[in-house]
């Protein structure tokens, strides 16, 4: 079920109760929405807030699980290939190190970042920000810049694109050799699923509300923060 926020009326003076659509700048009074409902911009249909029931705890468990999977993925064989009696197995680390010739060294960095470092960093940052909030502790030091960084890194986390790339690569070498998935491939597929679940549960407006509410001198603005925990 989706709500349209109530249009701004000029007599409102309390800025904390207002919300600006980040995509089209439409101004609204923040509606009180229940967990599971979405606040959607009337003009450009961007989702402004989408609090989910017990989202904080779910994100913490999903992020922790994805970090474990990510670490395990590194060391197990990812794909195995054999042709004419010759075998080769490759791990995610090998894939990342494929671009080792000098002129392509920058691609090593970039591929590592997109498929390993950024997904891991984002999950780590979310844990760092959310664990104190969910367990009613004072927010972590520099929790706000940490969450902002996690938000800005979102488009650069490309684990799901890499997973589809595996399928394409597999079909490309099908004629040349026999290829099979190693255990790390299934772990990586699980990781992609977990990261997408984190995304489904994460409502950044709720996190900002909770961060503001947890800072003593900030005015109480939280309309959605109660759904986080």
């Amino acid at each position: 079920m989706s709500h349209h926020p109530e249009a701004f009326s000029p007599d409102a003076t309390d800025l904390a109760s207002l919300v600006a659509c980040p995509s089209c700048d439409a101004l609204y009074r923040m509606p009180r929405i229940a967990a599971g409902e979405d606040a959607v911009c009337q003009r450009c249909h961007r989702v402004i807030a989408a609090p989910r029931h017990r989202a904080g705890m779910q994100i913490i468990s999903l992020a922790a699980a994805s970090l474990v999977l990510l670490a395990a993925t590194l060391f197990f064989p990812f794909l195995k290939i054999s042709a004419a009696g010759v075998h080769n197995a490759t791990s995610v680390l090998d894939v990342v190190l494929a671009f080792t010739s000098d002129e392509l060294a920058i691609l090593v960095l970039f591929t590592t970042a997109c498929i390993l470092a950024i997904p891991a960093l984002r999950m780590g940052l979310l844990l760092y920000v959310l664990v104190p909030l969910v367990f009613d502790h004072p927010p972590s030091a520099r929790a706000r810049p940490a969450f902002l960084l996690s938000e800005r890194l979102k488009p650069w986390s490309m684990a799901e694109i890499f997973a589809l790339g595996c399928a394409v690569a597999l079909i490309k070498v099908r004629d040349l050799a026999e290829v099979e998935f190693g255990p790390a491939f299934w772990m990586f597929a699980g990781l992609v699923f977990l990261v997408l679940q984190v995304q489904r549960n994460l409502c950044s407006r709720s996190v900002w509300d909770a961060l503001e509410a947890a800072t003593p001198d900030a005015p109480p603005t939280a309309a959605t923060q109660e759904h986080l925990t």
């Binding site: 794909l79 010759v86 691609l107 591929t111 050799a177």
Partner: peptide, 16 residues
Amino acid sequence: MIDVFVVAILSSLVHL
């Protein structure tokens, strides 16, 4: 970016 990743996967995998 998928094509870049395909190149990375193939280059590390196909060493026979």
